[in-house]
Amino acid sequence: MTSIDGSFSGVLCPIVTPLADGEVDEETLSSLTEFILDGGVDGLFPCGTTGEFASLAPEQRERVIGTVAEAAGDAPVIAGAAGTSVPETLRRIEEAESAGADAAAIVGPYFHTANGPEGTQRFFEAIAEESALPLYLYNIPMYVGDDVDAETVGTLAEHDAVRGMKDTSGDLSYFLSVDRHTPEEFVLMQGFDTLLVPALRMGSNGGVHALANVIPEVFAELLKSANDERGAELQREAIAPLFELCVEHGFAPATKAALVHRDVIPSDEVKPPLVELDEDAKADIADAVDRALER
């Protein structure tokens, strides 16, 4: 099993799920995994938000994780295992383990949208007690309803199974608060592409970034130059314009359109309720990709 611990420093890619007539295109998924790793990205995060996990059938999730894990070789694989109940989440973790994942990422119980810190802590603790894999918390308040309280993260970090967190709040103050409440070995990863440089400069282990699907070589260079002006330039001029388009049009559709433009995947097909982008949006994304690669 690949270890992702306090010594980890890098970028994981929440890989898209290539589709063909509604089914997982495993051949393309395998080649996409290789493209991302060859571009200098450090690991994979299948069945995340950008991977359309919420629209995949259970057997499709297993095929996605298994395909990525096989193609990833020694690179770490953290599989999304989000669920709204403890038993459902544990079942998804077991599926991820069987498929070859090294760890699992879990979110708070979404839909309720008013989870108190105590209830969220109890939810995560119940999962941690039975988890078949090391766990990474996934803070994504726009879909869950609220942040995982920083003090709660600190308490959960004391559990042997809880190794780190991906924060997609977009709130750097919150991110730094979590950093203060957790031990040095706790792996803290930034989830907002446009906050990677400031997070790295403030001690983040790295990030989990959708655009690493499309421009992995830019992220690899950024990691090497995060503390100088080149890193800030790449963040500002290459990543930010593409990220803004992803926010506007949706991460899975926009990322797939960008990958089609780069001839990495053959189709930008997405699962309902998502829809493919119109031609104007695709043209904007293609232009932003080309400009990012010229930086």
Rank of each mutant, 00 (worst) to 15 (best):
T2P: 10
S3W: 08
I4N: 04
P14T: 11
L19T: 05
E26S: 13
E26A: 15
E27A: 14
S31K: 15
G39F: 06
V41K: 05
T49P: 15
T50S: 15
L56E: 14
L56K: 15
A57M: 15
R61D: 00
R63N: 06
I65V: 12
G73A: 03
V77S: 04
A79I: 00
A81S: 10
E97N: 01
A99P: 03
A101R: 09
D102V: 10
A103S: 15
A103W: 08
A104Y: 09
I106D: 03
V107I: 15
A114D: 14
N115F: 14
N115P: 00
E118G: 01
F123Y: 15
E125M: 09
E125W: 08
A132F: 06
I140L: 15
I140P: 03
D146H: 14
D146K: 10
D147H: 12
E151G: 07
E151N: 11
V153Y: 01
D160I: 11
R163W: 06
G164L: 09
D167R: 13
S169K: 10
D171E: 05
S173G: 08
F175N: 11
V178C: 06
R180L: 06
H181W: 00
V187M: 00
M189A: 02
M189G: 02
G191N: 05
L195T: 08
L195P: 00
L200E: 07
M202Q: 14
S204T: 12
N205P: 02
A212K: 03
P216M: 05
V218S: 04
F219C: 04
L222V: 06
A232M: 15
A232F: 05
E233P: 04
L234Y: 09
L242I: 01
F243Q: 10
C246W: 01
G250A: 03
T255K: 09
K256G: 11
H261S: 07
I265H: 08
S267R: 08
D268Y: 13
D268R: 13
P273V: 08
D278V: 07
K282S: 09
A283T: 14
D284W: 02
E294K: 04
